[in-house]
Amino acid sequence: MRMRCLVVSLASSWRHRSLAVGAMLALFAAHSAGARADEPFTLTSASVRAGGTVQNAQVFDRNDCKGGNRSPQLSWRDAPAGTRGFAITMFDEDAPGRGWWHWAVAGIPATVDSLPENASSSGFLRKLGAVEARNDFDTDGYGGPCPPPGKPHRYIITVYALNSADLRLAQGRPALMFDHEIGTAAIGSARLEVNYGR
Rank of each mutant, 00 (worst) to 15 (best):
S18G: 04
L19I: 06
L19E: 15
V21R: 12
V21D: 09
G22V: 03
G22Y: 02
A23N: 13
M24K: 09
A26F: 02
L27M: 15
F28W: 07
F28P: 00
F28R: 11
H31A: 15
A33N: 05
A33H: 10
A35T: 10
R36C: 07
R36Q: 15
P40F: 13
F41M: 05
T42A: 14
L43N: 06
L43I: 06
S45Y: 03
S45N: 07
A46E: 14
A46P: 08
S47A: 13
R49H: 11
A50S: 13
A50L: 04
V54R: 06
V54I: 15
V54A: 15
Q55C: 04
N56Y: 02
N56P: 04
A57H: 02
A57K: 11
A57N: 08
V59A: 11
D64E: 15
C65K: 05
K66S: 04
K66G: 00
G67Y: 04
G67T: 03
G67V: 03
G67H: 04
G67C: 05
G68H: 00
G68P: 00
N69C: 07
R70N: 06
P72A: 11
L74I: 10
S75G: 08
R77P: 01
R77D: 12
A79P: 10
A79C: 10
P80C: 01
P80D: 07
A81M: 01
T83W: 05
T83F: 15
T83A: 14
R84A: 15
R84T: 00
R84P: 06
G85W: 00
G85R: 01
F86A: 11
A87N: 00
A87Q: 03
A87E: 01
I88T: 02
I88S: 07
T89P: 01
M90T: 11
F91G: 05
E93D: 09
D94W: 06
A95L: 07
G97H: 10
G97K: 09
R98M: 12
